[in-house]
Computed example of a mutant assay.
Amino acid sequence: MAVALPGLVLVTAIALWGVAVASAQVACADAVRAGARAAARGEPVPAVRTAVARAAPAGARVGVRRGVETTRVEVEVAVEAPAAGGLPAITLRAHALAVTEPGVGGP
C-alpha cells in the first residue's frame, strides 16, 4: 500500500500536466486566430501583436510578420512538466496566416 500512494500521486501529476498542455495548445490556437482576425481587418502590426499577446498563455513568445500578400502570426510557449515526473518541458507552437488588406503597408 505504501508503494501505491507515490505512484498514484505521480500519475495524477502527469495527468494534470496533460490537461495543462492541452489547455495551453488551445490558448495558442485562439491567440493566433485573434491575431489573424486583427491582421485581416488591416490593423497595424503593434495592434495585432497586442491582440495575440492578450490571448496567448503567460510566457508565450509572439511573432507577427506582415508581407505584401499575407500576415503570419506565430505563438510559442513551453509548458514545464511536474518536477516529480522528471520529464522535459513541451514546446507548443501555433501559427495562422491572414491575407493582407489592400493598401496596408508592408513589413
Rank of each mutant, 00 (worst) to 15 (best):
A96Q: 13
V48G: 04
V52G: 07
T71P: 07
R37E: 06
A89I: 01
E74F: 00
A2L: 14
A40P: 09
G35A: 09
I14A: 07
P88Y: 03
P107D: 08
A40M: 11
P82W: 01
P6V: 10
L10A: 14
V26A: 07
P6E: 09
A39L: 04
V77M: 07
E69L: 13
D30F: 05
A58Y: 03
P46V: 10
P57T: 02
P102I: 11
V79K: 08
R61G: 15
L5A: 15
A56N: 07
A84H: 02
P46I: 12
G67M: 00
V75I: 08
G35F: 08
A13S: 15
A55L: 09
A13T: 15
E76H: 00
A39K: 00
G85L: 06
P57E: 00
L16D: 02
L8H: 13
A36N: 12
A53V: 04
T91L: 00
Q25H: 13
P57G: 02
R72E: 00
G105S: 10
A4P: 03
R37V: 10
L16M: 14
V73A: 05
A4W: 05
A53R: 11
R37C: 04
G7F: 09
T71H: 01
I14H: 08
A94D: 15
A22H: 02
A38N: 12
A22C: 00
R66H: 01
C28F: 15
A51P: 13
A98E: 06
L8T: 12
A51V: 06
G35Y: 10
A83E: 03
A89F: 02
P6F: 05
V79A: 03
A40R: 15
A98D: 07
G18I: 12
G103K: 05
R41P: 14
V11W: 10
A78K: 06
V26I: 12
G105K: 07
A78R: 13
V62F: 15
T70C: 03
R41Q: 12
V79D: 06
L5F: 14
A84D: 01
V62A: 14
R41V: 11
R65I: 14
A36M: 11
A38W: 06
A22Q: 02
P107Y: 01
V32C: 01
P82N: 00
V32I: 03
D30G: 13
A89N: 01
P57I: 03
V104A: 13
L92K: 06
V64N: 06
P82G: 05
T50N: 01
R66L: 02
R37G: 04
E74W: 02
M1L: 13
T12A: 15
R41K: 06
E101Q: 15
V26Y: 01
A20T: 10
G106P: 15
V3Y: 00
P88T: 04
I14L: 14
A27E: 12
V21W: 03
T71Q: 03
I14D: 12
V73G: 07
V52M: 09
M1K: 02
A53P: 04
L8K: 13
E74L: 09
V19M: 13
A47L: 08
A15L: 13
A47C: 05
A56D: 05
G103N: 09
V19K: 11
R41E: 12
R49I: 03
R41G: 10
L87K: 04
